[in-house]
Design a protein around this nucleic acid. Structure first.
Length: 642
RNA sequence: GGGCCCGUCGCCCAGCCAGGAUAGGGCGCCGGCCUUCUAAGCCGGUGGUCCGGGGUUCAAAUCCCCGCGGGCCCGCCA
């Protein structure tokens, strides 16, 4: 339909403003047909009345459909509606499925691109929590979608080991005098970090209180004392968790006349590559990453091709070279006494504003490149890293999956790239922003050790799934039940995170994620398992011929399942091109709904007529495949049994 | 003070970018369905001033403007 509209426009020498493909939709009532096109939308640019455009377009579409004997177009109001010839659609779709096998649904893009997807990149100072999970699951799904579209994708994790937070952790570990994680290493690291950070804050606040008191500022003193009380409460909670660890760090810190100075010194020494400090930092961060990998790779099946250490980038001289380039740039300036890049001129360019999506009346502040002690800042290092991602993979496009709160620094990075003459990179660096995840009633804080870790959530989900699996575990071997529980539990968490569009803030309710009914991963997985089960019991292969394609026409629900399943390649392409995994989520939901309504009404194996039975088997097989494919693109496994 | 995102049945969400034919799902609630390919399922019912107000248009949940409510950002943190 879309191509008929395009060619019509082309002949009239008119360029349509919008892609006609976007105008194709499903009519509101099934009697109207299977697809519809609002002809009035293209009537005006073509210089026609809407009815005129509709009948002309219907004629074109009919010609095209006739060539394939695929259906019939009719005019209704200003719409052209098409009713597809189900048997023909069935044989074409199944033929493609048989030819492509497991690849059915993937449509290669016109041009295969090299794309880097950087995601998760959590600070290596505490375990992953639900917010990181949203990032990880989105990033992983985007990567899978892009691959399905024929792009060459590289997944990278940025290990941010040069921030102040890691220095705080390293300082704490040095006070502790050893590094022997008990239990999962990232959890242990998280505890050390929280204890150290909280003790540091208490120390700082105490100093402030003393100072205020000396100056007789009673009002302010009382306020600060209240803050202090809260901190002490947090500290005692931490102490309860691990008294030995806590006291050791506390005692050692009490002997240090200036913890802050020592932390800053650690940062400087690490950036300089001091061997002893380097060993300390690296060991600490490696422990944490080890824990991350256990969660991401072993438990969630989210893998990375590269783990990029921020410090490596810095030591290699890349960050230094960026600063050199900045100094030579005409936008180099001094801001608040520090070296900086000034964007006031660049951001006046309307093309740049539009391409980087900078709001029209928004003034991007200058970007400071270095602290006064000479150490670099995160954003500066990220400029180097952005370029590195393009170069190292020879990438056409780099997608950063990063929380929306980092919008400003992400814009600054792209402006900086332009300032340094890297326009192509700036325009092909995409900030895929997602909003935060909160847990109801939980005030999370990594610095205070107050968080629900992703591991805990996954444990709860898998545990819940195990109970459900055991309820119906019929003929399942224990190892099989284990596997099913893991697939269902982890799948449910992933689905919950993917089913809400990324730009919406979400409250993650474990309760709801563990409701394994409709609109959940288990619901889709269940439909898949049922389909797989029918196929397993069938002992017949529809692919060897004898399928009666006429069976595709009726009953309506059977026909609808075919129609929906056959849209899959289009949906996958769209979801990949628009970076919208949630389109896959809703497509799977629709297919599972139709399949679940269909199969109890229209038994497959008991069907007496062989040709009909084989067609139904083909339809079950297609459905099974399409569900598995979609789940896979979301990073969710599809069990054969559950 | 400036900017970004969000606001749709009691609750959670889709639809909005690319305006059109009675605004869709799920949860909840009410009532049915396990001798027939797994009831994590199916069938029926209940429920909406699309945050408010203007404007553009033959036509607005969708586009524009002004408000209101919630989240986030504006650091020599990351």
């Amino acid at each position: 339909m879309a191509s008929s509209a395009s060619s019509l426009a082309e002949e009239k020498g008119v360029k349509l403003e919008e892609n006609p493909e976007y105008l194709v939709s499903e009519p509101p009532r099934p009697e109207y047909g299977d697809l519809s096109f609002p002809a009035f939308r293209i009537a005006r640019p073509l210089g026609m009345k809407s009815m005129e455009a509709a009948s002309l377009l219907a004629e074109r579409i009919n010609d095209a459909l006739k060539r394939l004997s695929l259906g019939l177009a009719s005019v209704m109001g200003g719409y052209v509606n098409v009713r597809l010839e189900a048997p023909r659609l069935a044989s074409m779709t199944m033929e493609a499925y048989r030819r492509l096998g497991e690849r059915f649904g993937e449509v290669p893009a016109e041009r295969s691109l090299r794309i880097v997807v950087e995601h998760t990149s959590a600070n290596p100072i505490h375990p992953l929590h639900i917010g990181h999970a949203r990032n990880a699951v989105l990033g992983d799904s985007l990567a899978r979608l892009l691959e399905a579209r024929g792009h060459v994708v590289q997944r990278r994790f940025y290990v941010d080991d040069m921030g102040r937070q890691v220095a705080v952790l390293a300082y704490g570990l040095r006070l502790l005098g050893f590094m022997k994680p008990e239990g999962k290493p990232d959890h242990w690291i998280g505890l050390v970090y929280a204890i150290t950070h909280t003790l540091l804050d208490i120390r700082k606040l105490k100093d402030i209180v003393d100072e205020l008191r000396r100056n007789g500022r009673d009002e302010e003193t009382r306020g600060k004392i209240r803050e202090l009380d809260e901190l002490v409460a947090d500290a005692s909670e931490l102490r309860e968790k691990e008294p030995g660890l806590f006291d050791r760090i506390a005692d050692a810190m009490a002997k240090d006349p200036s913890p802050e100075r020592n932390i800053s010194r650690l940062m400087v020494l690490y950036e300089q590559g001091d061997p002893e400090v380097k060993k300390l930092f690296r060991e600490a961060v490696e422990k944490c990453i080890e824990g991350f990998r256990e969660t991401l790779e072993d438990r969630m099946g989210i893998r990375f091709d590269k783990w990029d250490w921020e410090s490596d980038l810095s030591w290699s001289g890349m960050v230094g070279r960026i600063i050199e380039e900045a100094r030579r740039s005409p936008y180099y300036t001094t801001y608040k006494g520090s070296e900086a890049l000034d964007f006031s001129e660049i951001q006046r360019d309307p093309e740049i504003r539009e391409k980087l999506r900078i709001p029209s009346s928004y003034d991007i502040p200058p970007l400071i490149l270095r602290r006064s002690d000479g150490t670099t800042l995160y954003t500066t290092r990220d400029i180097a890293y952005s370029l590195y991602k393009f170069r190292d993979f020879n990438a056409d496009k780099v997608i950063n999956v990063i929380a929306a709160e980092q919008r400003l620094p992400q814009i600054q990075i792209r402006l900086a790239l332009i300032a340094l003459g890297y326009r192509r990179e700036a325009f092909n660096l995409i900030h895929y922003a997602h909003e935060m995840v909160s847990l109801p009633g939980v005030r999370m804080s990594g610095r205070r050790g107050r968080y629900v870790s992703l591991d805990q959530l996954l444990d709860a989900a898998v545990e819940r799934a195990r109970i459900e699996v055991e309820k119906r575990a019929r003929s399942m071997a224990p190892s099989e039940a284990d596997r099913a529980a893991r697939i269902v539990g982890v799948g449910a968490v992933k689905y919950a995170l993917l089913s809400i569009a990324a730009q919406k803030p979400m409250t993650f309710s474990l309760e709801e994620a563990l409701d394994f009914e409709r609109n959940s991963a288990p619901y889709i997985q269940y439909a898949h398992a049922r389909a797989a089960n029918i196929l397993a019991k069938a002992k017949e292969d529809w692919g060897e011929g004898g399928v009666e394609w006429e069976e595709a026409s009726a009953p309506p629900i059977r026909r609808r399942l075919l129609l929906q399943a056959s849209r899959t390649p289009y949906i996958i392409a769209k979801a990949a091109d628009e970076l919208r995994p949630e389109l896959i989520v809703s497509h799977l939901g629709r297919i599972a709904d139709i399949f679940n309504s269909w199969y109890p009404l229209d038994p497959v194996i008991q069907e007496k007529n062989r040709g009909a039975r084989l067609y139904k088997l083909a339809l079950v097989d297609l459905t099974r495949h399409v569900l598995a494919k979609g789940l896979h693109l979301l990073g969710i496994e599809a069990p054969e049994k559950m």
